[in-house]
């Protein structure tokens, strides 16, 4: 469970304060797949970094599974947008997946088993001996996902993970994330700027306003649990929900932007 209560984040420059997150409150119940969308520059990444404990909040409270976040919480994994930079280029694929487990003090045999399972789940069993930079972008992001799976988190945060891969790969990765979520039963917060992606993936879409960020819309996605790239996307209900989110974002964008919008 993920709780955000009256979250504010202000970047403090000398003589000038830039508000990135205004007043944000929402709760993601245990096991839910929630997508966060918003216009570009609305502080999505800031929000995610605060949730991950990488950035202190200015005020307000963030709790993960009942514990207030002050540092990166245990049982929480993050998949970053910049796959090329979040994998260790000097470690082979398997070692990349195993490193967090090693940090937990887990034994070699168990590490190997978890890593193998995770790599198999993302369809990369055969490249575990390669270096990340020898793989395509999509495959690199799969490695990052495998690392998150092997970590066995209770909460998984994903920051626009597919923004930099081509459309074809993207569809495959979306389905992969769905299946991983269904199998692991994690609470998943997925940040994206792509409305289609948000509606296709989530059980719920949270639309953020332009900065200073607040929740502009909180929409339940009542599509069937079994999603399919062709069938779901041609479902009239999908089109309708997509239209709602789109309209809301356009409305938010037109609203007068407050100070510091350019940050």
């Amino acid at each position: 469970m993920l709780e955000v209560k009256n979250l504010h984040k202000v970047y403090d420059g000398h003589g000038r304060r830039v508000t990135a997150v205004g007043d944000l409150t929402f709760t993601v119940p245990e096991g839910q797949f929630a997508c966060v969308v918003g216009p570009s520059g609305c502080g999505k990444t800031t929000l995610l970094r605060v949730l991950a404990g990488l950035l202190p909040a200015t005020s307000g409270e963030v709790t993960v599974r009942g514990t207030p976040v002050t540092a990166p919480p245990p049982d929480l994994a993050v998949v970053f947008q910049e796959y090329g930079r979040s994998l260790f280029p000097w470690l082979r694929v398997r070692a990349n997946v195993e490193l967090p487990l090693k940090a937990q003090g887990m034994g070699r045999a168990q590490r190997r088993e978890l890593a193998s399972e995770a790599l198999e789940a993302v369809g990369l069993s055969d490249v575990d001996n390669a270096y990340p930079w020898q793989l395509s972008g999509g495959m690199q992001q799969r490695v990052a996902i495998a690392r998150a799976i092997a970590y066995q988190p209770k909460v998984l945060l994903m920051d626009e993970p597919f923004a930099a891969v081509d459309a074809q790969t993207r569809a495959d990765l979306e389905d992969l994330v769905r299946s991983v979520w269904q199998r692991l039963g994690v609470t998943l917060l997925f940040v994206t700027h792509d409305i289609d992606e948000a509606v296709y993936l989530g059980q719920r879409v949270i639309v953020l306003s332009a900065s200073p960020t607040t929740v502009a819309e909180d929409l339940a996605i009542d599509l069937p649990a079994e999603r399919d790239q062709l069938a779901t996307r041609s479902d009239p209900r999908f089109t309708e929900l997509r239209g709602q989110v789109y309209a809301r974002i356009q409305q938010v964008k037109r609203a007068p932007a407050a100070e510091g919008a350019s940050a």
């Binding site: 970094r49 991950a52 404990g53 990488l54 540092a71 990166p72 245990p74 929480l76 994994a77 993050v78 970053f80 910049e82 930079r85 979040s86 260790f88 000097w90 470690l91 490193l99 967090p100 090693k102 940090a103 937990q104 690392r147 970590y151």
Partner: peptide
């Protein structure tokens, strides 16, 4: 050093000597 890598180490709680060996020095 790349900040994303540092963040990765923080979120996955890779600390101490392991961090020195696999992140800082490398």
């Amino acid at each position: 050093r790349d900040e994303v890598l540092s963040d990765t180490c923080r979120t996955y709680r890779v600390t101490g000597l392991l961090r020195l060996r696999h992140l800082v020095l490398r």
